[in-house]
Amino acid sequence: MRYETERTRRRGHADTATDTLARGLGIFSIALGIAEVVAPRALARALGMKGQEGLITGYGLREIATGIGILASKDPTPWIWGRVAGDGLDLATLATALERDNPNKRNVGIAMAAVAGVTALDVYCAQTLSRESPHPLPPLQDYSDRTGFPRGVEQARGAASDFEVPRDFRTPEALRPYTQPDLPQNPMPSM
């Protein structure tokens, strides 16, 4: 979508789908970040990365920050690019765990495949967002004083009731009573 509303928060958009995707990625970021912060030890064990708990916690904090950035900012584009960079870091780190003697190599492979999948989504989302809003968009204009009525709206109501609707523009007589049932002067049409 192209216009700023409470829901989309961004201007210059072609569709809401990318917005929704960006928000989804933001929530995913936070969830993953929390998992990394809360259970670095379990993760390290599963990936055969013992001793790197501190690094995992750090990455978790990064994910949470990025997620908040995506959800809270007016324009999530730079934050989604941030996710792309983070994905690269994640993949590089996981790659170091792919050594021959790691008994959990299979898990690392699965994790890398998952990250690669999310990376593809991140890149797609970031590119679409960048295409949609190449320039920062100016703020909303205030048109609340543009009544169009020099004497104000209340004075304008019915001010043109001297106008006589030409015959060819009038509602067919038979349809009138139905459209204004509470007007007594309109008799029910005879069947």
């Binding site: 509303t5 048109y143 609340s144 169009g148 009525f149």
Partner: peptide, 13 residues
Amino acid sequence: RIPERLAMAEAGG
């Protein structure tokens, strides 16, 4: 759905 246009419409009653 365009806020500015809706605001202008509201101004007109």
